[in-house]
Design a protein around this nucleic acid. Structure first.
Length: 110
DNA sequence: CGATTGACGTACG
DNA sequence: TCGTACGCCAATC
């Protein structure tokens, strides 16, 4: 099994603290593949096929937009999950996204 | 095997 | 400042 890019992505997503969110580009950049941001999103697409469940609801695009909410079991699942963690979501967009933003590299540096 | 799409991001006009 | 175009990697048609 070639724990490829996908495994790495899942690993990072699982490391996202509760009440925090990150972006595809951040994960891609952390994996030194910022140019493959799309692949990160694709990995998330298959995230539901991996175990344990991947908190994909904590992963959004760089503007904090819940672009992938439509891929959840229900479009509300993502927003509900975020709000449940204390993150406000308005118009499918995370409020104070920059404030809730979490970078994988931060976890390492610290 | 070639073309298109996608949960993105950056560059250019 | 806003809108459009392109690139990047992988999977699907």
């Amino acid at each position: 099994m070639d724990k490829d890019f996908f495994e790495q992505v899942y690993q990072v997503v699982r490391l996202i603290p509760k009440g925090k969110v990150t972006s595809y580009g951040a994960i891609a950049a952390y994996l030194s593949a910022k140019r493959s941001s799309r692949v990160v999103g694709y990995a998330m697409n298959a995230a539901h096929t991996v175990k344990p469940r991947i908190p994909a609801h904590r992963v959004v695009n760089r503007v904090g937009l819940l672009t992938g909410k439509h891929h959840f079991e229900t479009p509300f699942a993502m927003q509900a999950a975020l709000e449940k963690e204390g993150i406000k979501v308005e118009d499918d967009q995370i409020v104070n996204f920059d404030k809730h933003f979490w970078d994988p590299s931060v976890n390492l540096k610290l």
